[in-house]
Nucleic acid binder design. Structure first.
Length: 470
DNA sequence: CGAGTTTGACCTGCGC
DNA sequence: GCGCAGGTCAAACTCG
């Protein structure tokens, strides 16, 4: 039995307890809040540090690339001065990196004559990737291929008008530039007449080209009557199982997903060529990713002023010198141009001309990022689908980068970053795809990248009855 | 009959 | 200016 007073006391003590409990709860809530805040602050602090590191890395890259750029600019200036001041004896030292691009027909003819003279005298040893210092404003040249395309395809009013409006004053420059449309050649093993690429083509001609008894077939895109895209199909003289498909131009109509993969690959390769043929091709000569033969190769060349990207999707044992002997049979300039196949996923950089960039922070990052697991590396390196996936991914990313950076970037910085990032991303994308096969998750960007790339490969294999589950 | 292919003629650019 | 080679045109032909 409890008395009222007792009850009162009990009540008051209960109140105290409740209050105490409440206080304790408030305290613990505050503590929790503080703890959370602390954790958050710690996270922010870490993020801040990470950003600092990134910033310093970027600054490091910037200064590195700036030095490179300055060095090359100085060299090109010296070379130009030497060429203008000294006689033809010194001309062999003039390195010309332009993929057939000069400021005008006369200059081009001059340069061709110079080159020929040098070649005849055995003074030029294969590589003639000059600095294109012939043109005072290199940055302008980025859009030249596009310009040229729109000019050549004047019948296509829509495309020309949009392109012209985009490029504006550069049109004047283009009028002086006879550079032809960039091309993308795809080498792939194919037993059928043409490689199925998801697009509709109509044959409009066939011709026996010099140096190859196999007839070359000419196709045009029939999806849209005004589509300027042309395709040439020819068997490789050294290996009849290899089909060389050369694409010219860009589709001016929406494409089916299956065709978009290939179109994206080729147009991206053109974009890559466009940027590579501008100011900074020279920097690429420093990269020779050709240590392994088990990888798709992207080769750049200028064939009779046709800048060409060759994507080699043939299996590793098909990578040989025949590429030069067939594709470049009519090439006056040396096919020895840019050759970056890679020992995937570790980006293996060796030197050919310029100092190696393997110590470049970007590449060290790439190596760290991609080269942790030797087994995975070996597996990927032997997976043909991933080899071609990289080729497509490689090109796709470059195009993406070009869209983002191309307008405002020019010169070495852009190219170094672009190239390094491309290589890195492509490697990571393919690696991610590989990992996903083994149940590892990957992010959406990596997924999209790999998916698009794999589609391209799947299309090229479709006629041979191979099926990749995408 | 329409769509696609074949094939000789023609055009253009380039080297000599 | 001429010849060569690449690229395109268009009439004839083939096929479903």
């Amino acid at each position: 039995m409890i008395f009222e007073g007792e009850a009162m006391i009990n009540m008051s003590s209960n109140n105290d307890e409740i209050e105490e409990t409440l206080n304790t709860e408030t305290l613990s809530m505050e503590e929790a809040y503080v703890t959370r805040a602390k954790v958050k602050m710690e996270e922010v602090r870490k993020e801040n540090e990470r950003l600092k590191v990134t910033l310093s890395q970027i600054m490091e890259d910037y200064s590195f690339l700036k030095n490179q750029f300055n060095g090359i600019t100085d060299q090109s200036k010296k070379a130009t001065n030497l060429a203008s001041m000294a006689g033809s004896d010194e001309e062999s030292e003039l390195v010309c990196l332009s993929l057939g691009r000069f400021s005008g027909p006369r200059e081009e003819k001059k340069m061709m004559n110079k080159r020929k003279t040098l070649e005849n005298g055995n003074k030029l040893d294969g590589i003639e990737l000059g600095l294109n210092s012939c043109h005072p404003d290199n940055s302008i040249e980025v859009s030249r291929n596009n310009l040229d395309e729109s000019k050549e395809e004047g019948s296509n009013d829509v495309r020309s008008s949009t392109k012209h409006s985009r490029i504006g004053d550069d049109e004047i420059l283009q009028q002086n530039n006879p550079m032809k449309k960039p091309r993308v050649s795809v080498r792939a093993q194919c037993n059928t007449q043409t490689m199925h690429d998801g697009c509709q083509w109509r044959k409009y001609g066939q011709k026996i080209a010099k140096g190859n008894p196999c007839p070359r077939a000419y196709y045009r895109c029939t999806v849209s009557p005004s589509c300027p895209v042309r395709k040439q199909v020819q068997r490789c003289i050294d290996d009849m199982s290899v089909l060389i498909t050369t694409y010219k131009g860009a589709h001016n109509h929406p494409l089916q997903p299956s065709a978009a993969a290939m179109a994206s690959t080729t147009s991206s390769a053109v974009a890559m060529l466009s940027c590579g043929s501008t100011t900074s091709t020279s920097c690429l000569t420093g990269y020779n990713f050709s240590t392994a033969s088990n990888f798709p190769r992207a080769t750049f060349s200028s064939s009779q002023s046709h800048p060409t990207v060759v994507l080699d999707l043939t299996p590793p044992n098909h990578h040989s010198n025949r590429l030069s002997s067939t594709l470049f049979s009519n090439t006056r300039s040396s096919p020895t141009s840019l050759n970056f196949s890679s020992n995937f996923p570790t980006i293996n950089t060796t030197t050919t001309m310029a100092p190696p960039h393997s110590q470049h922070p970007l590449f060290s990052g790439v190596q760290k990022q991609a080269g942790n697991d030797q087994n995975i590396a070996a597996a990927i390196a032997h997976d043909l689908s991933f080899q071609s996936a990289l080729a497509a991914a490689f090109a796709s990313i470059v195009a993406k980068n070009n869209n983002v950076n191309g307008a405002r970037s020019s010169g070495m910085n852009f190219h170094h970053q672009n190239f390094a990032q491309t290589t890195s991303n492509a490697s990571v994308g393919c690696a991610a795809s590989f990992m996903s096969r083994f149940g590892q998750p990957m992010n959406s960007q990596q997924h999209n990248l790999t998916l698009a790339a794999s589609k391209t490969r799947a299309m090229s294999l479709a006629d041979e009855g191979e099926h990749l589950s995408l």
